[in-house]
């Protein structure tokens, strides 16, 4: 309870600061210092968000679905690869440098290629999401496995445990904190990644909506969709944090 109050107090200053920025912004375009067409006022953005809410939600559903599919697939592949890399030294030695190098390729640069290969359907979007969320999760898991205590492994070995049991009862649980650190990044990337993939073509989704309002120079709608993307990203991060708390219940006890 006390903690909750402390959190609210901690939020006081950022909230005041944000209010000041919003008031400043409102007066900037409200008094015509900057043309309203280019920089809509916060009130206009709010109004656009309300009037377009139904349409935006329809698009958001598509984008969320792509992000969800990509993240699930990415998580599955990450676990398979991380476990294989932990199990076989040769796989680790062979793949780790390659994994790191692939991270220097800007994902946005290969997105058009994906569209050329896979068309305008859901496939290139999901693939792009898989690519962006893969790395932080694999690295999170691998780093986590390394924190396993040698003596704990000895103990399980003495009990007659096999490799999979050692993975299940020691390596996987101790990897959870570092896995969730990676997952939080992956979740944020996956949603924005799906939006970016949609810029390049498609029939629906927040990215597609963005390109449409851009062509119409509808700045208020542009700001509204950006605001929505921020809100959904925050929501997803919060959800991840909740799952993290649930999974690592032992960390929250006094």
């Amino acid at each position: 309870m006390k903690k909750r109050w402390q959190n609210i107090i901690k939020l006081k200053w950022p909230a005041i600061f944000l209010m000041l920025v919003l008031i400043g912004w409102q007066s900037l375009s409200g008094f015509g210092i900057v043309p309203r067409l280019v920089l809509p006022t916060p009130l206009q953005v709010g109004r656009a968000l309300c009037s377009e809410f139904g349409v935006l939600m329809g698009h958001a559903r598509i984008t969320l679905w792509e992000a969800f599919l990509g993240l699930s697939l990415g998580l599955f592949l990450s676990f398979v690869l991380a476990i294989a890399m932990e199990r076989w030294e040769a796989v680790y030695e062979g793949l780790y440098p390659i994994l790191v190098i692939t991270q220097t390729i800007p994902v946005i640069a290969i997105a058009p290629l994906l569209v050329l290969w896979m068309g305008y359907g859901i496939a290139p979007k999901v693939t792009l999401v898989v690519l962006v969320c893969f790395f932080p999760v694999v690295v999170g898991l691998l780093d986590g496995f390394k924190t396993a205590d040698r003596d704990a492994i000895h103990l399980l070995h003495a009990m007659g445990a096999n490799r999979w049991q050692i993975m299940r009862h020691i390596k996987m649980p101790v990897a959870m904190p570092s896995f969730f650190a990676g997952l939080k990044i992956a979740v944020a990337y996956s949603f924005v990644g799906a939006v970016i993939a949609e810029w390049l073509g498609g029939n629906a989704g927040l990215g597609v909506y963005m390109t449409r309002v851009k062509k119409a120079y509808a700045f208020d709608k542009m700001f509204a969709v950006i605001l929505l993307i921020i809100l959904i990203s925050l929501l997803l991060m919060g959800l991840t944090k909740m799952i993290e708390r649930r999974v690592m219940r032992y960390r929250n006890i006094k």
């Binding site: 003596d151 103990l155 003495a158 007659g160 009862h169 690592m248 032992y250």
Partner: peptide
């Protein structure tokens, strides 16, 4: 391994 039970020098209870 697996026949004789062994308690290592640390208590090694798993915190999780």
């Amino acid at each position: 391994a697996g026949r004789i039970s062994y308690m290592l020098q640390k208590d090694l209870l798993f915190e999780y």
